[in-house]
Write a protein that binds this DNA or RNA. Structure first.
Length: 157
DNA sequence: GCCAACGTTGGC
DNA sequence: GCCAACGTTGGC
């Protein structure tokens, strides 16, 4: 199983909204690296740290899981969508997305706390200038973040 | 194919 | 609101 981190701006789509919706499609990602991970690497059941960006403090808010593997992002050819890309079509989709569902809400784990934790050294999120909205997380880092929220991996089952 | 200009992300 | 980082665009 792979593990991931996905960023969402708190005031755009918070974890609480995911809980309310029960499931959502992760549309609007327009970055090739992130697309490739969603299209090729994210598998059913993979776990995701749900991260709130653009808020004070930035933080991990919960755990989600992949409930549908990569498929074309239909907002890319929706003329009414702000995510529209003229070069993408149903016949030749350029952008992909996955569906995620909530697993467990976490006590806030702030970016500062993560930076201060030596066990998280090397985590992509903590790298200077890291902007990717979808990132891989190794199992040690993933479990360490859980632990910082007082949760053990078994609690997710 | 290089690279300067530009736009966006996102912490601070 | 600032600005560093960095991906994308487009002229050449």
């Amino acid at each position: 199983m792979n593990r991931w981190l996905m960023k969402s701006e708190l005031d755009v789509y918070p974890y609480s909204q995911l809980v309310e919706d029960g499931q959502t499609h992760w549309d609007g990602v327009r970055n090739y690296q992130a697309r490739n991970m969603m299209r090729d690497d994210m598998k059913l059941g993979d776990l995701v740290l749900f991260y709130h960006s653009n808020t004070k403090p930035p933080h991990v808010a919960g755990v989600a899981k992949i409930v549908r593997e990569g498929y074309p992002d239909f907002t890319s050819w929706d003329v009414n969508s702000k995510y529209r890309d003229e070069k993408s079509s149903p016949e030749n989709p350029r952008w992909f997305m996955v569906d995620i569902a909530p697993v467990k809400e976490l006590a806030m784990v702030s970016l500062d706390a993560m930076k201060a934790n030596p066990a998280l050294e090397g985590m992509p999120l903590l790298r200077r200038g890291q902007r990717l909205s979808v990132q891989p997380v190794n199992v040690e880092h993933f479990n360490e973040v859980l632990s910082m929220a007082g949760v053990s991996p078994e609690d997710l089952e």
